[in-house]
Nucleic acid binder design. Structure first.
Length: 475
RNA sequence: UCCCCGAUAGCUCAAUCGGUAGAGCGAGCGGCUGUUAACCGCUAGGUUCUAGGUUCAAGUCCUAGUCGGGGAGCCA
């Protein structure tokens, strides 16, 4: 067995750097493992080695002196990226910058990292460069903090719904619904490329494909979630979602994670109320659990994120109808690149004006014209608008899109025909309205956009470990 | 997909009117130091994204492409 095997006992007993820094007092003994951030060798016969193990933003300072057997042979040669296992005594730090440090009694080098070619130097790197080193970028302060915040957000999402009795539902990744109205789909096929079997008309014969029909990666679990909501009451999905849109922006991914609660016996007002409570719960949880990481983002990434979080938590979201929003935009006196007119969708510039300049906080816009929204949204009594709502936040724009669903079969059929959709291919979706239909509502939230909003990270590709975007699927 | 901008040392950038490529950081070596993005000195390090073109001469100008960034659309 190799070198690692000999250390298994110590590895299993290691203590997190976070624990040492926050909980251990001078006099304790500890074994920690981590990756070297910096190593400064003093001719006075000792070396300062800071290591990080991902458990927290801060690094632990190790003091190793020349009495250690491998001091000259190994310790003085340590550099950024090396992995080490250190056992020593927690002591009060003589220097500034840390409460305690670890005086090494034994320092084992588990893995070297040649400083001549280790890509993560102890200096500023651009996000663009780190994206090309996605397998190592988690070792930086920024990406470690992003990973911890993303984790805290994910945990908070489950907690919020679980504590309210929602059932976590796993909707299919592969779907045969090819027109959910949410953009381009990735096709899933096992037919040999270029040699697909043809039917008599010369078209590809999909009946010979794996699923005996065309299949795709899901763009939303909503329709399936509705069926379970109409049996279990409140459910939520939380999983990967795919869009084959050729979108090249700092806010779009081809593969991203989406949360989609769906609630039976719920109308649009209830939907909006849950959306607001939900966002506030998640923001609050991150502030509570990742204070150091949030402080870091506030200092190094975006100096407004903490104030924004506090502001959002301390204020009610603004409720505004689409009609009122259009009215405000018309009367703003501003000149727009895109026209404002009742019946046209709001553009990014309009949404940002409302949420950033008019109110300076999240805004929930509701009751959009039916003509610009999906077939499944419930027609309002005015016969012109549907019970849809978008939650808009400063800087990001739309973070949540939701609606009360059309629960009347005849109205749904009418809407589908008006949008050139074939009700027969949605037979199971229509069945929900045929048998025991109930008012229900839900919304979808992009996980990465929430993490972006919370951390202030400018590009969505930097809040997911391995971003998939047009022409990019490295790693 | 559309518009704009960019690509020069490992990284971040500079290079005047088109005139023969430089700095900081990092790295190597040496010095100094309870240090903490340590500090000081020396050294090495380049097919200037690719392919064409203009010119006596191209990092610089032109054309096409590739990749990256910003904005827009689509959306979460």
């Amino acid at each position: 067995m190799g070198a690692i095997a000999r250390y298994v006992g110590d590895i299993m007993n290691r203590i997190l750097v976070k624990t040492v820094l926050e909980n251990l007092n001078p006099g304790s003994t500890a074994t920690v493992g981590g990756w070297v951030r910096t190593c400064r060798v003093s001719k006075g016969g000792f070396a300062f080695i800071t290591i990080n193990d991902g458990s927290c933003l801060a690094a632990l300072q190790i003091v190793a002196d020349a009495t250690l057997a491998n001091y000259e042979g190994e310790i003085v040669k340590l550099s950024a990226g090396c992995s080490v296992l250190v056992t020593g005594e927690v002591v009060e730090s003589q220097g500034k910058g840390q409460r305690v440090e670890l005086k090494a009694g034994e320092l084992r080098v588990l893995g070297w990292a040649d400083p001549a070619d280790y890509p993560i130097q102890p200096k500023h790197h651009t996000m663009e460069f780190l994206r090309t080193q996605a397998h190592l970028r988690a070792r930086t302060n920024t990406f470690g903090a992003v990973a911890r915040v993303r984790n805290a957000v994910s945990a908070a999402i489950h907690e919020f719904f679980q504590s309210r009795g929602f059932i976590y539902l796993h909707t299919p990744i592969i779907t045969a619904s090819d027109c959910e109205g949410a953009g381009q789909l990735f096709r899933v096929s096992t037919l040999p490329a270029g040699q697909e079997p043809k039917d008599q008309a010369g078209a590809i014969d999909w009946s010979q494909d794996f699923f005996a029909r065309k299949a795709y990666l899901t763009v939303s679990g909503q329709l399936e979630a509705e069926t379970y909501a109409c049996a279990l009451g409140n459910v939520y999905t939380f999983g990967p979602t795919f869009r084959a849109e050729n979108s090249n922006t700092p806010r779009h991914l081809a593969e991203f994670w989406m949360v989609e609660p769906e609630m039976a016996f719920c109308d649009l007002q209830g939907d909006a109320r849950v959306a607001e409570e939900f966002l506030k719960y998640v923001f609050s949880a991150v502030l509570t659990r990742c204070p150091d990481d949030m402080q870091f983002f506030n200092e190094r990434v975006d100096k407004t994120v903490l104030a924004t979080m506090e502001h959002v938590l301390g204020n009610d979201f603004v409720r505004l109808s689409y009609t009122e929003a259009v009215d405000r935009l018309v009367k703003s006196g501003k000149t727009w690149n895109y026209p404002i007119q009742w019946g046209l969708d709001l553009q990014t510039e309009h949404e940002r004006y409302i949420t950033e300049e008019v109110f300076g906080k999240p805004v929930i816009i509701s009751d959009y014209p039916a003509s610009i929204k999906a077939f499944y949204m419930r027609m309002n009594d005015d016969q012109k608008t549907v019970a849809a709502m978008d939650v808009l936040v400063p800087r990001i724009g739309e973070i949540i899109g939701g609606s009360q669903r059309e629960d009347r079969l005849d109205v749904l059929n009418e809407r589908m025909r008006a949008m050139n959709l074939e009700p027969d291919s949605y037979w199971w979706y229509c069945d929900l309205r045929r048998y025991g239909s109930v008012p229900h509502a839900g919304f979808g939230l992009g996980l990465e956009r929430v993490v972006q909003f919370i951390t202030g990270m400018a590009n969505i590709r930097d809040v997911i470990p391995y971003p998939r975007t047009p022409r990019s699927a490295e790693f």
